[in-house]
Amino acid sequence: MSNYQNAIEINGLTRKYDGFTLDNVSFSVPKGSIMGFIGQNGAGKTTTIKLLLNLITKDSGTIKMLGMDNSQHEYKIKEQISAVFDELPFHEVLNARQLSVVMADIFKEWDKKTYFDYLDRFSLPQKKKFREFSKGMKMKLQIAVALSHKAKLLIMDEATTGLDPVVRNEILDIFLEYLQDEENSILLSSHITTDLEKIADNVTFIDKGRILLSGNKDETVENHGVIKCRKAEYNDIDPDDIISARLTDFGAEVMINDKKSCQRKYSGLIIDNTTLEEIMLFYVHRQKKEWT
C-alpha cells in the first residue's frame, strides 16, 4: 500500500514558448481515480504531459508523481507509469510477439502472460506486422503494453482520438477494469468530452495554457447550467454570474457556474443541465462574453 494521496500533483507549472505560455498550472490527480484533462487543440494538454514525463524542461513549478518529485526520481517513477500517445511508437516491421521480447528488456516488471492475454482479448494477431494494423488495433496494442508491466499510473494523450465508437468503448471499459485496483490512476487527455463524461471521476479544463476548472466531474457538471432566455431577460442577468452567452436570433443561451444560487436569483428562468462539451465551449468564449 503506497502512502501518497495524489498520483499526480502539479503546482505552479510554467513553461514559456514563443507565442504560447503554459501559465502557472496547478492540479492534482487523486490516487485511484480517472482525471479527464480537457481542452481545445493547442490549449497546453500535450505540453503539460511532456513536462510530466520530463520530455521537456519546465521553467518553474513542481511536479510530484506517485509521491515523488519527477526530476529527482525520474527513472523510479517511469518504472511505474505508462504513457500512451495517439500514434504507435513502435517500428512497423515488428509484430506483437517480437515486441514482447523488447518490452521485457525495457520494463523490469514486464508480465508476458498478461500481455498475451490482452492480445487475445483484443483479438490482436501475434505474428502480423504492425504496418498491417488498423488505427484501432495499434491503439489496443499500446494499451496492452501499457497495462502489462504493473504500471500504477497511465498517462494517455489523445489516446481515443480518431477511433470508432466501438473501439473507444472497449478501451474505456478496460480503463474502468484497471481502476478496480485502487492503487491505479489515469490521466486521460482528450478533446472528446463524451468519453470523459462516461468514465472520468475528475476533470481539469485547460485553455490557452491556463487551468480554468479542476475538480470532481459530477460536481462540475451539476454546478454549471445553461439559461435559455429572451434577449430582454438576458440583459437582466448579473454579468458576474455569466461565464459567456451565445446570442441567437431568438434569444440567448447563458452559461452560469453556480446553478443553485442562480435558481434562487432568477426563479422565473429555466436553467437546463449542461455537459462537459458545453462547459468547454462557453469557457473558451469567456473573454468575449458574448458570441454567436
Partner: peptide, 21 residues
Amino acid sequence: EIIFADKNTGWLRFCQTTAVT
C-alpha cells in the same frame, strides 16, 4: 539509418517515457 527512423516513429520518445536511460 534507424536512428532517424527511431526519431520519426516516436520510438526514442517512447523510450524516454520509460525507465530506459
